[in-house]
Design a protein around this nucleic acid. Structure first.
Lengths: 124, 124
DNA sequence: ATTAATATTGTAACTGCGTTACAATAAGAA
DNA sequence: TTCTTATTGTAACGCAGTTACAATATTAAT
């Protein structure tokens, strides 16, 4: 099952890199890449996640956002906030590690932190 | 649009109270209350949320969990962790307020914090 | 207790989003 | 160039939640 390089994979990765630490939904990627089928895009995103190249986060209204953030590719769980601006709609990774405190006896393996509010750009 | 008391509403609230600070999915409530239609249950849950009686949280795999936790009904956003045990599958509200630190310029209005791991019961 | 107004319910059909099956295509090694 | 098989597109499916609408049940007024 050796992976192959394809136009579609390169294109999807380009989309996510262009977005930087802002996240995209799969339908946003679809719109940017109408030459590829949505199933293909889903599969590529999943394979990137399996490889640790990107990560995905669920929003509070049940949609997945995909990120190619600066810590992707390293061994880590993505323990930073993901902030969605209610005004402009943009979703971004906040690049601060969060110290997750849980009661004794609990063991944390993964986190999904979602915040909504107003971003700096929309506040000024 | 004055609200009315019904058997279904009482039954749904009973389910959630019985669960205490553990969360339930709508399909779990459906199974407990086969006498009511799933649409009815969805509507009741939504109306409870509108009234602030319960709150809902999205899990990292895209399912909603409904909680009647001890702080529901007060004016607050539910800024506590929601912990799902990978072993026993239970989901619980962790009753500690989290101090959410965001970069200056950002304004937080709502949070959705989801953690997975192993709970105290399954660890011992 | 009756009646009337309308909030609530059940049924059916629909939506959005992600997945699966399978045959056709194309990447990359020989 | 040829072969192997990873990848793709098409179509159909599945799940979770929503909407439309007519039937029912709660509550207030008589």
């Amino acid at each position: 099952m050796k992976k192959r390089q394809t136009k579609s994979k390169r294109a999807v990765l380009e989309c996510l890199k262009r977005a930087e630490n802002f996240g995209l939904r799969s339908d946003e990627i679809e719109n940017q890449l109408p030459e590829f089928d949505r199933v293909t895009i889903y599969r590529i995103l999943q394979s990137f996640i399996d490889d640790g190249i990107i990560h995905k986060v669920i929003s509070d209204d049940g949609k997945f956002y995909y990120f190619k953030c600066h810590t992707c590719g390293e061994i880590h769980y993505h323990n930073h906030y993901h902030f969605k601006c209610d005004n402009c709609g943009k979703v971004e990774c906040m690049n601060n590690e969060i110290e997750v405190k849980v009661p004794s006896g609990y063991k944390v393996s993964n986190v999904n932190f979602w915040i909504t509010g107003v971003c700096r750009d929309c506040n000024s």
